[in-house]
Amino acid sequence: MARDFTPKVVTASDLLEGDVIYLKADDGWSRDLAEAEVITDEAHAQLRLLDAERLANKVVGAYLADIAPSGSGPQPVHFREDFRRRGPSNYPHGKQQDLPRTPTR
């Protein structure tokens, strides 16, 4: 029995800056998961991944990531994707640059 297809987004790393990026429906890239194209068909997902892999001069490591659609945009279903979308885990650069610093002991 075939499993249901889990919705996906195409994600990669920006070749020059290293940031996590997501493929949008208009073939552009965004650093915001909320702007990513949510793919609900397996064949379409494979085609979109091929599209991304052809852009080796712009992106590296493209792959399909499982997501859960929500009212506020796609949400990661795996810890790794949740961690990646938040940006670097060290301060003060990347997506976390504007976050308040927590005191260290």
Rank of each mutant, 00 (worst) to 15 (best):
R86G: 09
H93F: 14
Q96E: 04
N90V: 14
G94E: 08
G87T: 14
R31E: 09
I39L: 13
H44G: 00
A43Q: 15
I21T: 07
L49R: 04
H44K: 03
E35W: 00
T104Y: 03
G73R: 02
E42W: 01
V9P: 06
L47H: 06
S89M: 08
D32F: 06
P69Q: 01
E17P: 00
E37W: 12
Q46L: 13
A56Y: 15
F79L: 15
G71S: 09
D98M: 11
V60Q: 07
I21W: 01
T6K: 13
G94A: 12
G73S: 08
D66W: 05
R48T: 01
D51I: 08
F79C: 09
P100Y: 10
V9I: 15
D19Y: 11
D98A: 14
G87R: 14
P103T: 07
N90A: 13
D66A: 15
P74A: 11
Q46E: 13
A36S: 08
D27C: 10
H78W: 06
A25P: 00
R54C: 10
R3A: 12
V9N: 06
S89P: 00
G71V: 07
A43D: 15
P7A: 04
A12G: 07
D66T: 06
G87E: 15
K58H: 10
D41C: 10
T102Y: 07
S13C: 13
G73D: 04
E17K: 10
L49G: 06
R54Q: 09
R85F: 01
D27H: 11
L15T: 01
D98R: 09
K24L: 05
D51P: 00
V77K: 05
A43R: 15
Y22Q: 00
G18W: 08
E81A: 12
P7R: 01
I21P: 00
A45V: 03
T40F: 07
L23Q: 03
G71C: 01
S70K: 04
S70N: 06
D98C: 05
D19H: 10
N57S: 15
T104K: 08
Q46C: 05
